[in-house]
Amino acid sequence: MAGIGLDAEKDSKVLSFETKCREGEAQTLSLVVQGKKVTYRGPADMRSLLESRGENTLYANVRINGEVLNRRDFENIPIAEGDEIDILYFMGGGIVQPD
């Protein structure tokens, strides 16, 4: 897994997020993310939301309004006003694969 926590990766995420916003897709949504009320401004898809929060989208499942989505195509998951979103992180421990 390359680039975890590297500034370069974060910067590129922020950049792509800002680019999308400039393209006029931005919406303002009131959401509940990880149990906290937040006001989010950006494109109304899960990937944009995760990226705006600096989340590493590769190792999480998301749960929207009680439903766990076992999928990684976050750009195709729409988000809407009032959505309650939990980010469920995969945490495996020491090694990726046993020998």
Partner: peptide, 10 residues
Amino acid sequence: PGTVPSCAEA
């Protein structure tokens, strides 16, 4: 494999 970093990596 490889999508979730391990403690050794992250």
